[in-house]
Simulated scan of single mutants.
Amino acid sequence: MQDETITNPEEQEVPVEAAAEDAGKTLDEINEEIEKELEEAIEQEERSREEELEEEVAELKNKLLRSVADLENYRKRSARDKADAIRYGNQRLLEDLLPVIDNFGMGMAASEQDAGSMIYMGMQMVQKQLDDFLGNQGVQVVDLKPGDVFDPKEHDAMAQEVSEEFEEGQIIRIMRKGYKMGDRLIRPANVVVAQAAVVEEAADAVAEEGEES
């Protein structure tokens, strides 16, 4: 007697044609749907890859632009530093020379009573040579006169005095000339600045109180 194998109808494979007929579709229609889904999946993957490439290109472009900008800024800084080195290369020497020029100017002022003498005329010639030398180096005296407003960026206040002629904050007199080399201040002018009389009176009152105590 032969063994009979009982097969569960639910476990039997259903042919594609039968499945298509059950779904009310033909085999060609199912294949078309599968192909369409594959095409859409491929297109989606290509779009994603294309977007990634566009992002990478944009990032590389930004890096390139930044590199170009950095290089241009470096070139400008180098050119500016080179120009400053040429322009201000003698600044230290000129700073050391200015006190000598100051002393020579004081000697000129003290010799004015002998303005007609050969010595004074020779000193005038030397003064002109010094002025020409400073001018050739781009050095100029800070434009300043009594009555100008005190500017801490260009002036050093050596003292304050009460003045009836000048208002508070104005320069009374110039103790030492200031010099510039181009736009750079190489030595500030030493000046005496006017202060308000009220400040002077208050200082006197404090001094008197101190003496009484």
Rank of each mutant, 00 (worst) to 15 (best):
E208F: 03
K180D: 13
M118H: 05
L53K: 03
E164P: 04
R187L: 11
E95H: 01
G182F: 09
A18H: 07
E46G: 07
E165Q: 15
Q2R: 15
Q127R: 10
R176L: 15
D156E: 15
A189L: 12
Q2F: 11
L98V: 09
V141A: 07
I34F: 07
E168N: 03
M1H: 00
E165F: 11
I186A: 03
I101M: 14
R47W: 02
S163V: 06
D132L: 09
K145W: 02
L144P: 06
D81P: 01
A157Y: 09
E72Y: 00
Q12C: 05
Q91F: 06
I42T: 06
E200G: 14
E161S: 12
L27R: 15
D131R: 05
A18V: 06
L27K: 11
E40F: 10
F133E: 12
E55P: 01
G138F: 09
Q129D: 00
F104L: 04
D148G: 13
A159F: 13
E112C: 05
V16L: 15
P152K: 14
P146F: 04
E37N: 10
Y74I: 03
R176F: 00
R77G: 02
I86N: 10
I119F: 02
D131G: 00
E40N: 07
M118G: 04
D70S: 04
E154S: 10
L185Q: 03
Q170S: 02
D102F: 09
R92Y: 15
E46H: 10
S213V: 15
T26H: 11
D143F: 01
L144A: 13
A194H: 06
